[in-house]
Deep mutational scan, measured.
Amino acid sequence: TGEEYIAVGDSTAQQVGDLTFKKGEILLVIEKKPDGWWIAKDAKGNEGLVPRTYLEPYS
């Protein structure tokens, strides 16, 4: 379980453990880390770190 967020920009994984996503994708945020990198899952079930500045709450 988690909260749904929509990507407001494209982000390409810079290192192992990062999640690549495109603008408009809905991501499920699993954990919000205080350093600004959140753990999220995409629609295909891929999981990784995403920069919170690229996400907005999805409603």
Rank of each mutant, 00 (worst) to 15 (best):
T12P: 13
D10R: 03
E31V: 12
D42I: 02
I26R: 06
D18H: 15
Y5W: 13
G48R: 02
T20K: 10
T1P: 11
E47A: 08
G45M: 04
K33G: 11
K22N: 07
I26D: 00
T20N: 10
G24V: 01
L19I: 05
I6T: 04
V29N: 00
A7K: 01
G9S: 15
T53H: 14
L49A: 09
E4P: 14
G24W: 05
D18E: 15
L49W: 10
K22H: 09
S11E: 03
S11Q: 12
G24R: 02
K23W: 05
A13D: 10
K23H: 06
I39R: 10
A40I: 07
I39P: 02
K23P: 03
R52L: 09
D18G: 14
D42K: 01
K44S: 12
G17V: 05
P34Q: 11
T53C: 14
N46P: 00
I30G: 02
K22I: 08
G9N: 14
I6H: 03
R52M: 15
G45Y: 02
K22G: 05
T1E: 13
S11H: 15
I26M: 06
G17T: 07
E25N: 06
E4L: 15
T53E: 15
E3W: 14
D35W: 03
W38R: 00
L27N: 00
E3D: 09
P34F: 09
K44I: 08
I30D: 01
E4K: 14
E25I: 02
K33M: 09
I39A: 05
L28H: 08
I39E: 03
D42F: 01
S59N: 13
P51A: 11
R52T: 07
G24T: 02
K44V: 08
L55M: 05
W37Q: 09
G45F: 03
T53F: 12
P51R: 12
I39C: 08
E3K: 07
L28P: 00
V50T: 03
W37A: 07
Q15P: 05
V8M: 10
E31W: 09
A7E: 01
A13L: 08
N46M: 07
K41T: 08
Y54I: 14
V8K: 09
A7T: 11
G2M: 11
P34L: 10
A43L: 10
K22T: 08
K41D: 01
V50C: 04
W38C: 03
D42Y: 00
G48A: 03
G24Y: 04
V16N: 10
I6Y: 07
G2S: 09
Y5F: 09
V16E: 13
V29G: 00
K22Y: 09
E31K: 10
F21H: 01
N46D: 06
G24K: 02
P51K: 13
K32T: 04
P51L: 14
E4A: 14
W38V: 05
Q15E: 10
K44G: 08
G36F: 04
I6M: 08
E3A: 08
G24L: 03
Y58E: 05
D35C: 07
D35S: 07
T53V: 12
I26H: 05
L19G: 00
V29C: 02
L55T: 01
A43C: 11
R52E: 14
D42S: 05
G2W: 14
R52K: 13
Y58V: 12
W38T: 01
G48P: 00
V29Y: 00
E3G: 07
E3Y: 09
P51W: 14
L19D: 01
G9D: 12
K32S: 03
E25C: 06
E25Q: 11
L28S: 06
E47V: 15
A13G: 13
P34H: 10
Y5Q: 01
Y54W: 08
S59D: 14
G9P: 01
A40Q: 01
D10K: 04
F21W: 04
Y5C: 04
I26Y: 04
S11M: 15
Y54G: 07
V16K: 12
V8E: 02
E3I: 09
Y54L: 15
G45S: 03
V8G: 04
A40C: 15
Y58R: 07
Y54V: 13
V16D: 12
K32D: 02
D18S: 14
G36S: 04
L55Q: 00
P57A: 08
L27D: 01
K22E: 06
K33R: 14
T1R: 12
P34W: 07
G24Q: 02
S59L: 13
E56Y: 06
I30Y: 06
V16A: 12
D35Q: 03
Q15R: 15
S11V: 15
A13K: 08
D42E: 01
A40R: 00
G36I: 03
E31L: 13
V16R: 10
K41P: 00
L55W: 01
I6R: 09
K22P: 02
P51H: 15
K44A: 13
A40N: 00
V50S: 01
T20H: 10
E4Q: 14
A40T: 04
K23A: 09
I30P: 00
K33W: 07
Q15Y: 10
L28K: 07
